[in-house]
Amino acid sequence: MPSFTYKALRVHEISENQVERSITSCTLDDLPPGEVLVRVHYSSLNYKDALSATGNRGVTRHYPHTPGIDAAGVVEESSDARYQRGDEVIVTSYDLGMNTPGGFGQYIRVPADWVVPRPQGLSLYESMILGTAGFTAALALHKMEQNGQHPDQGPVLVTGATGGVGSSAVALLAKAGYQPIASTGKQDLHAYLEALGATEIISREAVDEPLRKPMLSSRWAGAIDSVGGSTLGTAIRACAPNGNVATCGLVGSPNLSVTVFPFIIRGVNLLGVESAECPMPLRLQIWQKLATTWRIDHLSQIAHLCSLDHLNGYIDLMLQGKTRGRIVVDLR
Protein backbone atom coordinates (compact mmCIF):
# COMPACT_ATOMS: atom_id res chain seq x y z
CA MET A 1 0.00 0.00 0.00
CA PRO A 2 1.41 3.46 -0.86
CA SER A 3 2.58 5.49 2.10
CA PHE A 4 0.28 8.25 3.39
CA THR A 5 -0.31 9.98 6.69
CA TYR A 6 -2.82 9.11 9.36
CA LYS A 7 -3.56 10.42 12.85
CA ALA A 8 -2.45 8.84 16.12
CA LEU A 9 -2.15 9.88 19.72
CA ARG A 10 1.59 9.61 20.35
CA VAL A 11 3.36 9.76 23.67
CA HIS A 12 6.83 11.33 23.44
CA GLU A 13 9.52 11.31 26.11
CA ILE A 14 10.72 14.92 26.48
CA SER A 15 13.02 14.35 29.47
CA GLU A 16 13.72 11.68 32.06
CA ASN A 17 10.44 10.70 33.75
CA GLN A 18 8.48 13.25 31.73
CA VAL A 19 6.33 12.58 28.66
CA GLU A 20 4.07 14.62 26.42
CA ARG A 21 0.96 13.50 24.52
CA SER A 22 -0.10 14.90 21.17
CA ILE A 23 -2.06 14.03 18.04
CA THR A 24 0.62 13.30 15.44
CA SER A 25 0.72 12.51 11.73
CA CYS A 26 2.22 9.06 11.13
CA THR A 27 2.88 6.89 8.08
CA LEU A 28 2.56 3.15 7.60
CA ASP A 29 6.35 3.01 7.79
CA ASP A 30 5.99 3.85 11.49
CA LEU A 31 4.20 0.52 12.07
CA PRO A 32 6.03 -2.73 12.90
CA PRO A 33 6.07 -5.83 10.68
CA GLY A 34 2.99 -8.03 10.79
CA GLU A 35 0.71 -10.06 8.55
CA VAL A 36 -2.44 -7.97 8.96
CA LEU A 37 -2.91 -4.23 8.44
CA VAL A 38 -6.14 -2.93 10.00
CA ARG A 39 -7.86 0.41 9.48
CA VAL A 40 -9.08 1.13 13.01
CA HIS A 41 -12.66 2.37 13.34
CA TYR A 42 -12.96 2.25 17.13
CA SER A 43 -10.76 1.78 20.16
CA SER A 44 -11.43 2.19 23.89
CA LEU A 45 -9.66 3.66 26.88
CA ASN A 46 -8.43 1.28 29.58
CA TYR A 47 -6.52 1.98 32.78
CA LYS A 48 -3.46 0.32 31.24
CA ASP A 49 -3.68 2.81 28.36
CA ALA A 50 -3.77 5.71 30.80
CA LEU A 51 -0.63 4.36 32.48
CA SER A 52 1.12 3.94 29.12
CA ALA A 53 0.13 7.49 28.19
CA THR A 54 1.90 8.84 31.28
CA GLY A 55 5.18 7.02 30.70
CA ASN A 56 4.69 4.05 33.02
CA ARG A 57 7.63 1.72 32.24
CA GLY A 58 5.79 -1.23 33.70
CA VAL A 59 3.42 -1.02 30.72
CA THR A 60 5.49 0.54 27.92
CA ARG A 61 9.27 0.46 27.82
CA HIS A 62 10.07 2.51 24.72
CA TYR A 63 8.81 5.89 23.51
CA PRO A 64 7.53 7.51 21.33
CA HIS A 65 4.56 5.17 21.49
CA THR A 66 0.90 4.88 20.50
CA PRO A 67 -1.20 3.35 23.33
CA GLY A 68 -4.50 1.53 22.89
CA ILE A 69 -4.80 -2.13 23.93
CA ASP A 70 -8.14 -2.41 22.07
CA ALA A 71 -8.92 -1.95 18.39
CA ALA A 72 -11.74 -2.87 16.02
CA GLY A 73 -11.75 -2.17 12.34
CA VAL A 74 -11.44 -3.41 8.78
CA VAL A 75 -8.59 -5.37 7.22
CA GLU A 76 -6.74 -3.31 4.60
CA GLU A 77 -4.01 -5.83 3.75
CA SER A 78 -3.27 -9.40 4.83
CA SER A 79 -0.56 -11.86 3.89
CA ASP A 80 -2.38 -14.52 5.91
CA ALA A 81 -5.06 -16.49 4.07
CA ARG A 82 -7.38 -16.41 7.08
CA TYR A 83 -8.08 -12.71 6.51
CA GLN A 84 -9.10 -10.79 3.41
CA ARG A 85 -9.34 -7.10 2.63
CA GLY A 86 -12.66 -5.82 3.96
CA ASP A 87 -12.97 -8.32 6.84
CA GLU A 88 -14.18 -6.76 10.09
CA VAL A 89 -11.95 -7.78 12.98
CA ILE A 90 -11.14 -7.21 16.66
CA VAL A 91 -7.65 -7.01 18.11
CA THR A 92 -7.15 -6.90 21.87
CA SER A 93 -4.54 -8.07 24.34
CA TYR A 94 -1.14 -9.60 23.55
CA ASP A 95 1.36 -6.71 23.14
CA LEU A 96 -1.02 -4.31 21.37
CA GLY A 97 -0.79 -0.83 22.88
CA MET A 98 1.97 -1.83 25.24
CA ASN A 99 5.13 -1.94 23.12
CA THR A 100 3.35 -2.42 19.78
CA PRO A 101 1.60 0.69 18.38
CA GLY A 102 -2.02 0.38 19.44
CA GLY A 103 -5.57 1.41 18.78
CA PHE A 104 -5.13 5.13 19.42
CA GLY A 105 -3.88 5.32 15.85
CA GLN A 106 -6.02 5.02 12.73
CA TYR A 107 -3.96 2.03 11.56
CA ILE A 108 -2.36 -0.94 13.29
CA ARG A 109 -0.24 -3.75 11.87
CA VAL A 110 -0.22 -6.96 13.91
CA PRO A 111 0.50 -10.70 13.71
CA ALA A 112 -2.40 -12.66 12.25
CA ASP A 113 -2.55 -14.78 15.41
CA TRP A 114 -3.69 -11.73 17.38
CA VAL A 115 -6.76 -11.15 15.20
CA VAL A 116 -10.33 -12.20 16.06
CA PRO A 117 -13.05 -12.09 13.38
CA ARG A 118 -15.89 -9.86 14.50
CA PRO A 119 -18.58 -12.22 15.79
CA GLN A 120 -22.05 -11.90 14.32
CA GLY A 121 -24.25 -10.20 16.89
CA LEU A 122 -21.77 -7.45 17.76
CA SER A 123 -20.93 -4.40 15.67
CA LEU A 124 -17.42 -2.95 15.65
CA TYR A 125 -18.64 -0.20 17.95
CA GLU A 126 -20.28 -2.64 20.37
CA SER A 127 -17.17 -4.81 20.43
CA MET A 128 -15.21 -1.79 21.71
CA ILE A 129 -17.82 -0.95 24.33
CA LEU A 130 -16.81 -4.36 25.64
CA GLY A 131 -13.13 -4.40 24.66
CA THR A 132 -10.59 -5.76 27.11
CA ALA A 133 -12.75 -4.73 30.08
CA GLY A 134 -15.84 -6.62 28.93
CA PHE A 135 -13.77 -9.56 27.78
CA THR A 136 -12.06 -9.72 31.19
CA ALA A 137 -15.38 -9.62 33.03
CA ALA A 138 -16.71 -12.42 30.81
CA LEU A 139 -13.56 -14.47 31.29
CA ALA A 140 -13.93 -14.05 35.06
CA LEU A 141 -17.52 -15.31 35.00
CA HIS A 142 -16.54 -18.15 32.68
CA LYS A 143 -13.84 -19.32 35.10
CA MET A 144 -16.25 -19.02 38.04
CA GLU A 145 -18.86 -21.13 36.28
CA GLN A 146 -16.23 -23.66 35.24
CA ASN A 147 -15.56 -23.93 38.97
CA GLY A 148 -19.21 -24.48 39.86
CA GLN A 149 -20.64 -20.97 40.33
CA HIS A 150 -24.40 -20.80 39.73
CA PRO A 151 -27.04 -18.08 40.22
CA ASP A 152 -28.90 -20.26 42.75
CA GLN A 153 -25.98 -19.95 45.18
CA GLY A 154 -26.76 -16.30 45.84
CA PRO A 155 -25.62 -12.80 44.89
CA VAL A 156 -22.20 -11.98 43.44
CA LEU A 157 -20.20 -8.95 44.54
CA VAL A 158 -18.64 -6.61 41.97
CA THR A 159 -16.03 -4.17 43.26
CA GLY A 160 -15.06 -1.00 41.43
CA ALA A 161 -18.51 -1.30 39.91
CA THR A 162 -18.57 1.96 37.94
CA GLY A 163 -15.27 1.25 36.14
CA GLY A 164 -14.86 -0.51 32.81
CA VAL A 165 -14.53 -4.05 34.17
CA GLY A 166 -16.99 -3.38 36.98
CA SER A 167 -19.74 -1.92 34.78
CA SER A 168 -19.35 -4.79 32.32
CA ALA A 169 -19.41 -7.34 35.15
CA VAL A 170 -22.61 -5.92 36.69
CA ALA A 171 -24.42 -5.96 33.33
CA LEU A 172 -23.04 -9.37 32.39
CA LEU A 173 -23.99 -11.00 35.71
CA ALA A 174 -27.51 -9.60 35.41
CA LYS A 175 -27.77 -10.95 31.86
CA ALA A 176 -26.60 -14.39 33.03
CA GLY A 177 -29.27 -14.56 35.75
CA TYR A 178 -27.20 -13.54 38.78
CA GLN A 179 -27.95 -10.90 41.41
CA PRO A 180 -25.05 -8.43 41.28
CA ILE A 181 -24.08 -6.52 44.43
CA ALA A 182 -22.31 -3.39 43.18
CA SER A 183 -19.70 -1.73 45.38
CA THR A 184 -18.84 1.90 44.62
CA GLY A 185 -17.69 5.11 46.24
CA LYS A 186 -19.68 7.23 43.77
CA GLN A 187 -23.09 7.91 45.29
CA ASP A 188 -24.20 9.91 42.26
CA LEU A 189 -23.96 6.80 40.05
CA HIS A 190 -26.38 4.53 41.93
CA ALA A 191 -29.07 4.98 39.27
CA TYR A 192 -26.52 4.08 36.59
CA LEU A 193 -25.67 0.82 38.38
CA GLU A 194 -29.33 -0.01 38.91
CA ALA A 195 -29.94 0.48 35.18
CA LEU A 196 -27.15 -2.02 34.48
CA GLY A 197 -28.89 -4.60 36.68
CA ALA A 198 -27.42 -4.20 40.17
CA THR A 199 -29.85 -5.61 42.75
CA GLU A 200 -27.98 -4.05 45.68
CA ILE A 201 -25.50 -1.18 45.94
CA ILE A 202 -23.06 -0.91 48.84
CA SER A 203 -20.36 1.57 49.70
CA ARG A 204 -16.67 1.15 48.93
CA GLU A 205 -16.02 1.16 52.68
CA ALA A 206 -18.33 -1.82 53.20
CA VAL A 207 -15.84 -3.95 51.27
CA ASP A 208 -12.73 -2.59 52.96
CA GLU A 209 -12.64 -4.09 56.45
CA PRO A 210 -9.29 -4.25 58.30
CA LEU A 211 -7.80 -7.69 58.85
CA ARG A 212 -8.88 -8.09 62.47
CA LYS A 213 -10.77 -11.33 61.87
CA PRO A 214 -9.59 -14.13 59.57
CA MET A 215 -13.17 -14.60 58.33
CA LEU A 216 -16.32 -12.47 58.19
CA SER A 217 -19.99 -13.40 58.04
CA SER A 218 -20.93 -14.68 54.60
CA ARG A 219 -22.37 -11.83 52.52
CA TRP A 220 -22.05 -13.02 48.91
CA ALA A 221 -21.71 -16.27 46.99
CA GLY A 222 -18.83 -15.04 44.85
CA ALA A 223 -17.10 -11.90 43.63
CA ILE A 224 -15.45 -10.24 40.64
CA ASP A 225 -12.79 -7.87 41.96
CA SER A 226 -10.81 -5.30 40.00
CA VAL A 227 -9.53 -3.35 42.99
CA GLY A 228 -7.16 -5.67 44.85
CA GLY A 229 -5.64 -4.94 48.26
CA SER A 230 -7.86 -4.94 51.33
CA THR A 231 -10.97 -4.87 49.11
CA LEU A 232 -10.04 -8.24 47.63
CA GLY A 233 -9.18 -9.50 51.11
CA THR A 234 -12.64 -8.50 52.36
CA ALA A 235 -14.32 -10.12 49.35
CA ILE A 236 -12.56 -13.39 50.18
CA ARG A 237 -13.23 -13.30 53.93
CA ALA A 238 -16.97 -12.59 53.44
CA CYS A 239 -17.50 -15.15 50.68
CA ALA A 240 -19.90 -18.02 51.30
CA PRO A 241 -18.68 -21.64 51.41
CA ASN A 242 -17.39 -22.98 48.08
CA GLY A 243 -17.80 -19.60 46.40
CA ASN A 244 -15.45 -18.22 43.76
CA VAL A 245 -13.63 -14.89 43.93
CA ALA A 246 -12.15 -13.80 40.60
CA THR A 247 -9.35 -11.24 40.77
CA CYS A 248 -8.44 -9.18 37.72
CA GLY A 249 -7.11 -5.79 38.84
CA LEU A 250 -5.02 -3.79 41.27
CA VAL A 251 -6.26 -0.22 40.99
CA GLY A 252 -6.39 -0.11 44.81
CA SER A 253 -3.28 -2.12 45.64
CA PRO A 254 -1.32 -5.12 44.36
CA ASN A 255 -0.93 -6.43 47.90
CA LEU A 256 -3.15 -9.05 49.51
CA SER A 257 -3.27 -9.84 53.22
CA VAL A 258 -5.47 -12.77 54.24
CA THR A 259 -5.14 -15.96 56.23
CA VAL A 260 -5.69 -19.43 54.83
CA PHE A 261 -8.92 -19.89 56.84
CA PRO A 262 -11.41 -18.87 54.10
CA PHE A 263 -9.75 -21.40 51.80
CA ILE A 264 -9.41 -24.36 54.16
CA ILE A 265 -12.55 -23.88 56.28
CA ARG A 266 -15.05 -22.49 53.76
CA GLY A 267 -13.47 -23.87 50.61
CA VAL A 268 -13.41 -20.42 48.98
CA ASN A 269 -11.67 -20.43 45.58
CA LEU A 270 -9.46 -17.55 44.47
CA LEU A 271 -9.33 -17.43 40.66
CA GLY A 272 -6.78 -15.37 38.78
CA VAL A 273 -8.02 -13.78 35.54
CA GLU A 274 -5.41 -12.91 32.91
CA SER A 275 -6.77 -11.86 29.54
CA ALA A 276 -3.69 -10.66 27.63
CA GLU A 277 -2.40 -14.13 26.76
CA CYS A 278 -5.73 -15.97 26.83
CA PRO A 279 -5.44 -18.94 24.41
CA MET A 280 -7.15 -18.25 21.10
CA PRO A 281 -9.70 -21.12 21.29
CA LEU A 282 -10.96 -19.80 24.64
CA ARG A 283 -10.75 -16.21 23.38
CA LEU A 284 -13.03 -17.08 20.45
CA GLN A 285 -15.42 -18.91 22.78
CA ILE A 286 -15.72 -15.92 25.11
CA TRP A 287 -16.32 -13.46 22.25
CA GLN A 288 -18.97 -15.77 20.83
CA LYS A 289 -20.77 -15.88 24.20
CA LEU A 290 -20.59 -12.08 24.44
CA ALA A 291 -22.27 -11.90 21.03
CA THR A 292 -25.01 -14.44 21.84
CA THR A 293 -26.06 -15.89 25.20
CA TRP A 294 -24.14 -13.27 27.20
CA ARG A 295 -24.93 -10.34 24.93
CA ILE A 296 -25.44 -7.44 27.32
CA ASP A 297 -28.71 -5.60 26.89
CA HIS A 298 -28.46 -1.85 26.29
CA LEU A 299 -24.68 -1.85 25.81
CA SER A 300 -24.81 1.86 25.03
CA GLN A 301 -25.59 2.58 28.70
CA ILE A 302 -22.02 1.62 29.55
CA ALA A 303 -20.37 3.75 26.86
CA HIS A 304 -19.36 7.31 26.18
CA LEU A 305 -18.10 8.06 22.68
CA CYS A 306 -15.22 10.49 22.16
CA SER A 307 -13.03 11.56 19.26
CA LEU A 308 -9.28 11.06 19.08
CA ASP A 309 -8.89 14.83 19.48
CA HIS A 310 -10.68 14.74 22.86
CA LEU A 311 -9.04 11.58 24.20
CA ASN A 312 -6.32 13.45 26.13
CA GLY A 313 -8.82 14.87 28.60
CA TYR A 314 -10.39 11.48 29.28
CA ILE A 315 -6.97 9.98 30.04
CA ASP A 316 -6.53 12.57 32.78
CA LEU A 317 -10.03 11.94 34.13
CA MET A 318 -9.43 8.19 34.26
CA LEU A 319 -6.23 8.66 36.25
CA GLN A 320 -8.22 10.84 38.67
CA GLY A 321 -10.91 8.16 39.04
CA LYS A 322 -13.54 10.39 37.44
CA THR A 323 -14.70 8.26 34.54
CA ARG A 324 -17.50 5.72 34.49
CA GLY A 325 -18.11 2.70 32.31
CA ARG A 326 -16.35 2.63 28.97
CA ILE A 327 -14.80 5.44 26.94
CA VAL A 328 -15.00 4.42 23.26
CA VAL A 329 -12.74 6.28 20.84
CA ASP A 330 -14.03 7.01 17.33
CA LEU A 331 -11.13 6.97 14.84
CA ARG A 332 -13.12 6.97 11.60
Rank of each mutant, 00 (worst) to 15 (best):
P101H: 13
G148N: 10
A246I: 09
T24I: 11
S123L: 06
V36K: 03
D309W: 00
R266M: 01
P67S: 09
G55P: 11
G97N: 07
T231A: 11
Q320P: 09
Y314K: 13
Y6E: 04
D87P: 10
S217N: 14
Y63L: 13
A140R: 08
C239V: 05
V245M: 01
L96G: 01
D49F: 01
I265D: 02
R212H: 14
A81Q: 13
P111F: 08
L157E: 00
M1H: 13
A195L: 13
T199A: 12
R295I: 04
E205P: 10
L173W: 00
A8P: 07
S218K: 14
A176S: 12
T136D: 10
G233C: 03
L141N: 09
M318E: 05
P210A: 12
E277D: 13
A171P: 04
G321M: 08
P32W: 08
N99I: 05
D330T: 11
I224C: 01
S15Q: 13
S257V: 14
P241T: 05
T323G: 04
R332T: 15
I69E: 00
M98S: 10
I129H: 02
R326C: 08
V19Q: 03
P111M: 09
E126K: 11
D80N: 15
G233T: 03
H12Q: 11
R204G: 07
D225F: 05
T292S: 15
S15F: 02
S44L: 01
T162D: 01
F261S: 09
A182D: 04
S307H: 07
L139I: 10
Q18V: 14
C26N: 11
T5H: 14
V156S: 00
Y42E: 01
T136P: 13
W287R: 00
K175S: 04
C239L: 04
L157D: 00
N269G: 03
H62C: 09
V268R: 03
L28A: 01
M98Q: 14
G34P: 05
I236M: 02
Q149W: 01
D87Y: 07
P254R: 11
T159G: 00
F135Q: 06
L282R: 12
R324A: 14
D29R: 13
S44P: 03
G185A: 10
Y314S: 05
E200P: 07
V38I: 15
N17V: 07
A169M: 08
S44I: 00
E88N: 09
V273R: 01
P117L: 12
S217R: 14
L28F: 06
L172Q: 04
V165Q: 00
P180T: 06
Y192F: 15
K143W: 03
Q153N: 11
K143T: 08
P210W: 13
T184Q: 04
G252I: 06
D330I: 12
G154N: 08
M128A: 02
T159D: 00
S78E: 10
G163A: 07
A72H: 06
R204H: 15
S15D: 13
E88W: 06
K289L: 12
G105H: 05
T66C: 14
V75C: 09
T100D: 06
T247L: 05
P214Y: 12
Y47V: 04
T132Y: 02
N244S: 14
A71V: 08
L96C: 06
M318H: 04
A137H: 08
V59W: 00
P210V: 14
